[in-house]
Simulated assay, not measured.
Amino acid sequence: MPQIERNKTTAAVHFVDPTHSTSKHALVLKVAGLDVYMNHRLLIKQAQFKLYYGDNIWLSGANGSGKTTLVQTIINNKSEFVPDYVQIGYFNQQLTTLDRKQTVLENVTNASTQVDNVIYAVLAGLALNNKLQLRAEQLSGGQLVRLQLAKLLLQTPQLLILDEPTNYLDLETKAALADFLHEYPGAILLISHDQTWAADVTEQQLIIHKQATTFGDD
């Protein structure tokens, strides 16, 4: 197994999406006239927006405005909003995509669409280079967060939804994740309270305010 060192600055990583030739510029998400509720309380009225392959949007709003509920509604009703050919990768703090009995390396390689040098670069950038043979159940909470991020990035879904991905990340690892997202070929829908970081990795801001969704400058 190659010995990999974590660089102080992350080298450029070129993700390869096997579907790129057919996905490029394709519509990956369409929300039109969606009312979002939680416990029968209206959070968002008539939400409306689209994402195309390659778009990256920061979904922002006050606590309790409905950001997470909106993305969960999309995921739970995928066929209503996402074309059949689109794969969704969803990151949240529940860490549901990990197999706790598998090693770090097994978790990412068993689902990865990337070549080995990209796999190792992502693991190094997310500070998992010294944990490759540990089972996921042996990792700390912060290491599990980084492992789930690595697994999703290396699966290269056409639509990547990230709900507060920088929690538990130090400054160096946040910078590495930003580098990876800059190179990510698919669409990204990001929820983050870290305004400076979110503005750096996205090109558009979708704001939830007074139960409405509007685009603004990020």
Results as ranks from 00 to 15, higher is better:
residue 192 S to V: 09
residue 137 E to S: 15
residue 148 Q to V: 07
residue 115 V to K: 14
residue 192 S to T: 05
residue 136 A to T: 09
residue 169 L to N: 08
residue 60 S to F: 00
residue 42 L to V: 06
residue 15 F to N: 03
residue 23 S to V: 01
residue 33 G to I: 12
residue 151 K to F: 05
residue 49 F to D: 12
residue 206 L to M: 09
residue 24 K to T: 13
residue 115 V to D: 15
residue 73 T to F: 02
residue 178 A to G: 11
residue 186 G to P: 03
residue 66 G to Q: 04
residue 65 S to F: 00
residue 19 T to F: 04
residue 98 L to T: 07
residue 139 L to C: 13
residue 141 G to D: 12
residue 8 K to G: 12
residue 36 V to K: 03
residue 44 I to Q: 07
residue 107 N to A: 05
residue 191 I to A: 03
residue 25 H to W: 00
residue 132 L to E: 03
residue 42 L to D: 12
residue 84 D to H: 12
residue 185 P to V: 05
residue 10 T to V: 13
residue 17 D to R: 10
residue 61 G to S: 13
residue 48 Q to H: 12
residue 193 H to Y: 02
residue 16 V to I: 14
residue 97 T to S: 15
residue 60 S to I: 00
residue 163 D to I: 09
residue 151 K to E: 14
residue 175 A to E: 14
residue 65 S to C: 13
residue 113 T to Y: 08
residue 202 T to K: 10
residue 141 G to F: 00
residue 120 Y to G: 02
residue 148 Q to I: 10
residue 87 Q to H: 09
residue 57 I to A: 03
residue 177 L to P: 07
residue 177 L to R: 14
residue 135 R to C: 06
residue 84 D to R: 14
residue 190 L to C: 09
residue 116 D to P: 00
residue 68 T to L: 01
residue 136 A to W: 01
residue 183 E to L: 13
residue 167 N to L: 08
residue 82 V to T: 06
residue 122 V to W: 02
residue 51 L to R: 01
residue 193 H to R: 06
residue 83 P to Q: 06
residue 189 L to W: 07
